[in-house]
């Protein structure tokens, strides 16, 4: 299949995603919106499978069958009351997928054409960071809502300082990877630290605020997909990821307003030294 046709179908998929998100914002069109988005995804996947750069199908087939099976089971067996944590769980899987794509790109590209380009390295670091934080952050959000973990804010004194140190360490590792002085062990260390960061960012947030956190993490997983698009030079990933990232942030804000909370109040308020719930009136 030639490149022109592939990009044409990617454009069609992106248009269906836009229509789908728009449809999901109104009660009358919501069902159709969801179907449009699903068709868009099918188009994008089928066209990708016809791409010339795909050489072997065994690994793909195994993953698609396993994933469809688990996805269908999860979606049909879950209780209706458990929907928010289900979204968190699925979102975490999406973040994990982006993480694996970034790691595979690092190993694959490095093996193939010598040193990686600057753009690819920056994009790989961003995808790893956001993907890892989304994976473990969503897992904690799931565990809190499923009552595997206590819903109250958890943590220790100085957890915000700890997170800041962790974040700076991740940036330093990313810097060494980008400058070319890092190798795959740097990559693994960066991933581990980012995974820990996802846990310690969400732990201190109370269970009642979890829907807002899930909306924010959903926005992150979109950004991770967009960053993965920059690694691979793939336009449909860039566009769709950016769409979800941006609309996710707006939805997060709308949900904050509906719950009469400010976003910074949700993210940082609960561990305040003063004790008691912080009521931000904006």
């Amino acid at each position: 299949m030639n490149l022109f046709l592939v990009d044409g179908f990617y454009l069609l998929a992106a248009m269906l995603f836009v229509g789908g998100i728009k449809g999901l914002t109104r009660p009358r069109t919501a069902v159709r919106g969801n179907q449009m988005a699903a068709i868009g995804m099918l188009v994008a996947v089928l066209v990708t499978l016809l791409d010339k750069s795909i050489l072997s199908y065994e690994w793909i087939l195994g993953g698609v069958i396993l994933g469809s099976l688990i996805g269908t089971l999860l979606a049909t067996r879950i209780q209706m009351t458990a929907m928010p944590q289900m979204v968190a769980l699925l979102n975490g899987f999406g973040g994990g997928a982006s993480l694996c794509v970034a790691a595979a790109s690092f190993l694959g590209l490095a093996g193939a054409d010598g040193p990686l380009g600057l753009v690819a390295l920056v994009a790989i670091c961003i995808t790893l960071l956001i993907g890892a934080v989304t994976l473990t952050g969503s897992a904690v959000a799931f565990a809190k809502l499923q009552e595997l973990l206590p819903g109250r804010p958890l943590g220790f004194r100085g957890i915000r300082g700890f997170n800041l140190v962790l974040f700076v360490a991740v940036l330093a590792l990313a810097g060494s990877l980008i400058s070319g002085s890092g190798d795959s062990s740097t990559l693994i260390l960066l991933t581990v630290l980012a995974l820990v960061l996802g846990v310690t960012l969400v732990m201190p947030i109370g269970g009642a605020d979890m829907p807002v956190v899930i909306a924010l993490l959903n926005s992150y997983s979109g950004l991770a997909a967009a960053a993965a698009g920059f690694i691979m030079g793939n336009s449909v990933l860039v566009v769709s990821g950016a769409l979800v990232g941006a609309s996710g942030i707006i939805l997060t804000r709308i949900m904050c307003v509906a719950m009469n909370r400010s976003l910074s109040g949700v993210l940082f308020g609960s561990m305040g030294e003063a004790g008691g719930p912080v009521m931000d009136a904006d």
Binding site: G63, N91, A225, L243
Partner: peptide
Amino acid sequence: GSNAISGITLVGALLAAG
């Protein structure tokens, strides 16, 4: 729904796996 769309990273995954 938009979470499902963020699963578009599947396209990147297919390219990596193939």
